[in-house]
């Protein structure tokens, strides 16, 4: 697995990462991938799981207030 790919995983959204992970698990369980590819996919899958867990752990109960921009349209 290229280093560039690992970097890409860090940039994935949770939803994208889960989707990639699901695809990998499905693909790898079909068993028609060569051993080398399977191991690469396994490593990628593990990296995705780590990434997802990292996102889930970033929990902080905080509500940010959105500042309003002028809504001329509604103030007419």
């Amino acid at each position: 697995m290229a280093k560039g790919e690992k970097k890409d995983i860090d940039k994935l959204s949770f939803e994208e990462a889960i989707q990639d992970l699901t695809e990998i698990v499905d693909k790898i369980e079909k068993g028609d991938t060569p051993l080398q590819t399977s191991i690469e996919q396994y490593e990628k899958g593990m990296a995705l799981i780590k990434h997802c867990r990292g996102i889930l752990q970033a929990a902080e109960k905080k509500i940010e207030k959105v500042s309003q921009t002028g809504d001329e349209e509604s103030k007419k």
Partner: peptide, 27 residues
């Protein structure tokens, strides 16, 4: 629910590990 999602992640991890281990063992 986060617990469910964590469970799913764990499930995926186990499936990946199991498969690759058996694949390696076979090889």
């Amino acid at each position: 629910d986060m617990q469910e999602v964590l469970g799913q992640l764990e499930g995926a991890e186990i499936r990946l590990k199991t498969y690759v281990e058996s694949r390696l063992k076979y090889a």
